[in-house]
């Protein structure tokens, strides 16, 4: 969709020159020209215009990096809402950041399965390595690191996302190097990420596939019958206590 491309471009111009202290200035009108056309097309996709509030916010963030005050007012105007409605709606969701963030937003999953694989430690290591607090931006404006909830990649725990691209099968002590590489070479060229391209496919052998993943020990129907027989509890509802 080119959104991310744009976002990087915009941030590229700023990086290096802008320190955190004088954070990037909010741009002027963002929804104009091509962007306005795209926004209007987006709105037209829905039976009711208000539905486009999140899509427009995504568009705005792709262009500017975060949601600014003027951004929310622009969205409000396009959708004929009050700015308070836009703020109230968008602040509900995790992804709409109202403060500037680094070029790379690193979201470290600390969900339960990842926690079993040391995600806590991984997060702490990252924060320490880059000397930054959660949700703050590093001095060079390159990174923000945040703690995230489950990223639907528990099979590849521990995992993280950089600008919402998955990197899986990490380890607490390898993550920092991954991020350093991304900082240096850019998101698209860093390839050591199993499943970054897509979901983790467990390394299932050709034989296993050929067998069609059929159960070997017990057929399902038999399993149910045996378990029922073994169980004192009747099979209809009821608590386990």
């Amino acid at each position: 969709m080119g959104e991310m491309g744009q976002s990087e471009q915009v941030n590229e111009e700023k990086s290096g020159t802008v320190k955190q202290a004088d954070a990037p200035k909010p741009p002027g009108l963002v929804f104009q020209g091509k962007m306005l056309e795209r926004a209007k097309a987006k709105i037209a996709e829905y039976p009711q215009s208000r539905s486009a509030v999140m899509p427009l916010a995504h568009m705005y963030m792709a262009a500017v990096g975060h949601l600014t005050d003027t951004g929310m007012r622009e969205i409000a105007r396009l959708l004929r809402l009050t700015p308070a409605e836009v703020l109230g709606t968008l602040s509900f969701y995790e992804m709409f950041k109202m403060a500037p963030k680094g070029r790379y937003l690193v979201s470290v999953c600390t969900g339960m399965p990842c926690q079993l694989y040391g995600a806590r430690q991984l997060l702490d290591n990252l924060l320490e390595h880059f000397n930054v607090a959660p949700h703050e931006v590093t001095g060079d404006n390159m990174l923000s690191i945040e703690e995230a909830e489950c990223q639907a990649a528990c099979g590849g725990a521990p995992c993280l996302e950089v600008n919402y691209r998955h990197f899986e099968y990490l380890a607490p002590d390898t993550a920092a190097q991954l991020i350093e590489d991304i900082k240096e070479r850019g998101l698209d060229t860093v390839l050591y990420r199993r499943g970054a391209e897509s979901a983790p496919l467990p390394p299932i052998s050709a034989e296993e596939i050929a067998e069609g993943m059929q159960p070997k020990l017990l057929s399902p129907k038999e399993a149910v019958a045996r378990a029922k027989a073994a169980s004192a509890v009747p099979a209809s509802g009821g608590g386990a206590k």
């Binding site: 399965p113 528990c154 993943m213 159960p215 070997k216 399902p220 399993a223």
Partner: peptide
């Protein structure tokens, strides 16, 4: 079925329903 946590090969497996947890 999605398998995660303390197993040697976590991942998604399409299985017949009724397969036992042990298998």
């Amino acid at each position: 079925f999605c398998l995660s946590g303390d197993v040697n090969r976590p991942g998604n497996f399409e299985l017949e329903q009724g397969t036992t947890f042990r298998e």
